[in-house]
Simulated assay, not measured.
Amino acid sequence: MSRYVVFDVETPNHMNNRMSAIGISVIEDGRITEEYYTLVNPEQSFDYFNVQLTGISEQSVKDAPNFPMVWDKIKPIMNSGMLVAHNAVFDLGVLKHCLEGYGIDWKPYVRYMCTVQMGRRLIPGISHKLNVLCDHYGISLNHHQADSDSRACAEILLRYFESGADAKNHIRTYSFRKE
């Protein structure tokens, strides 16, 4: 696979079942070729903690599209390559809850890679938090901003590939089946 869809979501509250923003960076042939970002109206309340962390509030998203409107735009991108995220199970879980919450059927499962898990195997002995890895590699980061986080994750993935990592050794499967 030579196309990777690297994504990051921000959430409005502790339930982590809706997103308030999504960022996507697409890697093709060893470089970032496409980026997408939008705020998302989660149609839920915001927790103070999440607002402080992300800077996204109910006021920020009042005119933003809701998840089904965003899904119509991003589904072709999400279908177009291997999904990748930093701490991927979190981002995939939020995506799964959004799909279920709005009654949207997608795939029963997806193949994905997690840059946290990759990093633990490829560069043991350091923290694999996104900001720490960005400092390690000299990657610019505006942390907890979905567009910046997805781009940083894509840059980290490219660094892993440059160091000889083989994607086949890091592919996992995530189930989107209803539980």
Results as ranks from 00 to 15, higher is better:
Arg3Asn: 06
Tyr4Asn: 00
Tyr4Met: 05
Val9Ser: 05
Thr11Arg: 06
His14Arg: 13
Asn17Ile: 14
Ser20Gln: 11
Ser20Pro: 13
Ser20Leu: 11
Ser20Lys: 12
Ala21Met: 02
Ile22Arg: 08
Ile22Asp: 05
Ser25Arg: 06
Val26Ser: 00
Val26Ile: 08
Ile27Ala: 02
Glu28Asn: 08
Glu28Ala: 13
Gly30Glu: 07
Arg31Glu: 14
Arg31Ile: 14
Ile32Gln: 03
Thr33Asp: 00
Tyr36Asn: 01
Tyr36Asp: 04
Thr38Ser: 14
Leu39Ala: 06
Leu39Asn: 07
Val40Leu: 05
Val40Ala: 03
Pro42Trp: 11
Pro42Lys: 13
Glu43Tyr: 00
Gln44Trp: 04
Asp47Phe: 00
Asn50Cys: 10
Asn50Met: 15
Val51Cys: 00
Val51His: 00
Val51Asp: 00
Leu53Asp: 03
Gly55Pro: 14
Ser57Gln: 11
Glu58Leu: 15
Gln59Tyr: 12
Ser60Val: 15
Ala64Gln: 09
Pro65Val: 03
Pro65Arg: 02
Pro68Lys: 09
Pro68Phe: 09
Val70Asp: 04
Lys73Cys: 07
Ile74Asp: 00
Ile74Lys: 08
Ile74Arg: 10
Lys75Asn: 06
Pro76Asp: 01
Asn79Met: 15
Ser80Ile: 12
Met82Glu: 02
Leu83Gly: 01
Leu83Trp: 07
Val84His: 10
Ala88Met: 02
Val94Ala: 06
Leu95Gly: 04
Lys96Ile: 05
His97Ile: 14
His97Pro: 14
His97Val: 13
Cys98Glu: 14
Cys98Gly: 01
Glu100Ile: 15
Tyr102Asp: 12
Gly103Val: 11
Ile104Val: 10
Trp106Gly: 14
Lys107Leu: 15
Lys107Val: 15
Pro108Asn: 05
Tyr109Phe: 12
Tyr109Ala: 09
Tyr109Glu: 03
Tyr109His: 09
Tyr109Ile: 04
Arg111Met: 10
Cys114Asp: 10
Cys114Ala: 06
Gln117Cys: 11
Gln117Thr: 06
Met118Cys: 08
Met118His: 03
Gly119Phe: 07
Arg121Pro: 08
Leu122Val: 15
Ile123Trp: 07
Ile123Phe: 00
Pro124Gly: 10
Gly125Asp: 01
Ile126Met: 03
Ile126Cys: 02
Ser127Phe: 05
Leu130Met: 09
Val132Pro: 10
Val132Gly: 03
Leu133Glu: 03
Asp135Gln: 13
His136Tyr: 07
Tyr137Ala: 01
Tyr137Asp: 04
Gly138Arg: 02
Ser140Met: 13
Asn142Ala: 12
His143Lys: 10
His144Asn: 07
Ala146Trp: 05
Ala146Thr: 09
Ala146Leu: 10
Asp147Lys: 13
Asp147Cys: 11
Asp147Gly: 11
Ser148Pro: 12
Ser148Tyr: 06
Ser148Thr: 12
Asp149Pro: 01
Arg151Cys: 08
Ala152Glu: 05
Leu157Asn: 04
Leu158Val: 07
Leu158Thr: 03
Arg159Thr: 03
Arg159Trp: 03
Tyr160Cys: 10
Phe161His: 01
Ser163Gly: 09
Gly164Lys: 09
Asp166Arg: 14
Ala167Met: 01
Ala167Lys: 02
Lys168Gln: 04
Lys168Thr: 00
Asn169Lys: 10
His170Gly: 04
Ile171Gly: 00
Arg172Asp: 04
Thr173Gly: 01
Tyr174Ser: 02
Ser175His: 01
Ser175Phe: 01
Arg177Asp: 06
